[in-house]
Design a binder for these strands. Structure first.
Length: 572
DNA sequence: GCCGTTTTCGGCCCGACTGTTTTCAGTCG
């Protein structure tokens, strides 16, 4: 089995960590970190690119050397240079850099001076007091490290987007009510709408900073203060999340928002353009010599380096800067473009509301249509429906539809894909549906070859129109199943099957990278909520967020179409 | 290690805060 993009990225990251500890050229280290990101974010696997004879050094930040190393990893599953380096620098040292206050310099000193090779060694050294003798390790630093080791602290924790959003809301409200505060906004990965976020970043504009940052650290939700100054504060909340507050004057708002929204690689790239133009960008503005020429708005900052405004969702340095420079930025889909929802459950299976209640909620959102997609019989925990149950539901839908104007419930089902790729309902009842949605719920642990064949077999059924939550991942709980998604996208594109972006905060499946790859492969896409109650229809915005991160325009999303055009577009 | 509207060599984003320092390195974002 050829190494996956994730495998390659992992090896490059580990190599970068050890190089950094060794004291290598920081730009060389950055090159490996950058390569890890570029490979991980690439929608196509490196092994497929190689098989297709494509040059890997066409990828940004990948030159001859890294291209060759990727080739080696794909063929052998290993990076010899990493193995060689690990004979001199213990591999567990890289993980020590995840501890707060420990960077490459201190980790190197721990290893060189005290022979500390891993977390257990470090814990022993702290207990024995051996660290006290070491330059740069005072009582506070030592205590902080000890506390982090005690708390587990393996890798930095990440949170679902909605959870971070919820934790941020009271803080934003509190800041907004403080005297002297002019504006309050979220920035960081929360503003970029990433599916998982590591911390909450908040930007405030105010004349005088210190009173605001200090008052902020006394908020009820704050468990501990990590740092506080006149322009910044970092705190940890009782729920464990870290919040970084930044404060600037209004004249710097745009520059600070751009800087603080990130992503880091995006910001570094934009600042690089500025340098090439003889400018300097920091969080206070854009400067020519000592003179500030922009900074009040993000538009100004982008314009100063010759770019149009780039939506936050695109700021990952995944080609958005080049696209912006060439005038090729897409007009991203918006929540208001959505005309209906194609995945929703009722009390008939595992939903909580009736057909009538779901229809009312969809009409209240201004939708033209709502597909009712209760589970098929195989999903017993969800009281899956059989043919007879479905026909009864269809009759009920007909009756309700007769009373609607400008709105229609669509007859459908979330048909289970059985282990062998057959569908859980006979073709006869599928052909009575307005739209056929299929999904896998069981046997998610099949080996990649079998899993892929299973899904492809399901797509072979000419009645199938939408593949729901295509990778079956659950955010922060379950990784995507082992399947060759590129083959699935290619087959779906050829057969005219749409891929779903499932908007449930727990799923967000397809994710941004896969959804972008699916579109590039020629797939149609839909954004659906998979609502299990009327209120769940409101999750559409989360799906739209991920669609935007996938560079999708309204024209890429079928459920932005009015009903008749939608049904035509879904036809195979 | 990558890259090229001044370049195939010599650059590579920039500032705040902490702790330990005796004027600043290291870490972090």
């Amino acid at each position: 089995m050829a190494a996956s993009n994730a495998d390659i990225a992992e090896l490059f990251s580990r190599y970068a960590d050890l190089l950094e500890i060794q004291g290598a050229n920081p730009f060389r280290v950055r090159a490996y970190r950058n390569a890890a990101r570029v490979v991980a974010d690439s929608g196509r696997s490196m092994s497929d690119r190689m098989a297709a004879g494509e040059a890997l050094d066409d990828l940004p930040g990948i030159g001859k050397d890294l291209a060759a190393k990727i080739g080696t990893i794909v063929r052998t599953g290993a990076l010899p240079q990493l193995a060689e380096l690990e004979t001199r620098v213990p591999r567990a040292l890289g993980e020590l850099m995840n501890l707060p206050g420990l960077g490459p310099k201190r980790v190197k000193s721990l290893y060189r001076e005290l022979g500390i090779r891993n977390r257990e060694d470090l814990q022993r050294a702290i207990r024995s007091g051996a660290l006290r003798s070491l330059h740069g390790f005072g009582p506070k630093t030592t205590a902080r490290i000890a506390a982090a080791i005690e708390r587990r602290a393996v890798a930095p924790q990440r949170y679902r987007l909605v959870d971070a959003e919820q934790a941020a809301a009271p803080l934003l409200a509190c800041l907004g009510a403080m005297p002297g505060v002019e504006t309050v906004e979220v920035a960081g990965s929360l503003r970029r709408r990433r599916d998982m976020v590591g911390d909450i970043d908040i930007l405030v504009t105010a004349r005088r900073g210190a009173p605001v940052t200090h008052a902020f650290t006394r908020h009820d939700a704050v468990a501990s203060v990590l740092a506080v100054g006149a322009t910044r504060a970092s705190v940890q909340l009782h729920n464990g999340m870290q919040v970084d507050l930044r404060l600037v004057p209004a004249a710097s708002h745009g520059a600070a928002l751009h800087y603080f929204t990130g992503s880091k690689p995006h910001v570094v790239a934009v600042r690089g353009i500025a340098v090439a133009k003889g400018l300097k960008i920091n969080e206070y503005g854009v400067y020519r010599g000592g003179r500030r020429i922009a900074g009040r708005t993000e538009d100004e900052v982008f314009a100063a380096v010759g770019l149009p405004f780039i939506p936050p969702e695109l700021r990952e340095n995944r080609g958005e800067i080049e696209a912006a420079a060439d005038g090729r930025l897409p007009t991203l889909v918006e929540l208001g473009d959505v005309r209906g929802d194609l995945h929703a459950h009722t009390v008939a299976s595992d939903g909580h509301d009736s057909l009538q209640a779901m229809a009312d909620a969809a009409r209240a959102l201004g939708y033209d249509y709502l597909a009712i997609t209760d589970h098929s019989r195989r999903v017993r925990v969800a009281h899956g429906l059989d043919t007879r149950d479905l026909r009864a539901q269809f009759a009920e839908i007909d009756r309700l539809n007769a009373g609607f104007r400008g709105f229609r419930l669509l007859k459908s089902a979330e048909v289970d894909i059985l282990g062998d790729g057959h569908l859980d309902l006979p073709d006869a009842v599928l052909s009575e549906m307005d739209v056929v949605v299929v999904a896998a719920h069981y046997q998610l642990g099949l080996p990649a070859g079998k899993q892929t064949a299973r899904i492809l077999r399901a797509l072979d059924n000419r009645r199938v129109q939408i593949l729901a939550h295509p990778t079956t991942r659950l955010v922060n709980q379950r990784p995507e199943f082992a399947a060759h998604m590129e083959s699935i996208f290619a087959a779906a594109a050829e057969r005219g099957v749409a891929m779903e972006i499932n908007a449930q905060p727990d799923r967000l499946d397809l994710d941004d990278v896969h959804a972008r790859a699916a579109r590039a492969a020629g797939c149609k896409l839909v954004v659906s909520t998979d609502a299990h109650a009327a209120a769940g229809l409101a999750n559409m915005r989360h799906g739209v967020d991920q669609a935007r991160r996938a560079w999708l325009a309204a024209s890429d999303v079928l459920n932005t179409l009015p009903l008749e055009r939608l049904l035509r577009a879904l036809r195979r």
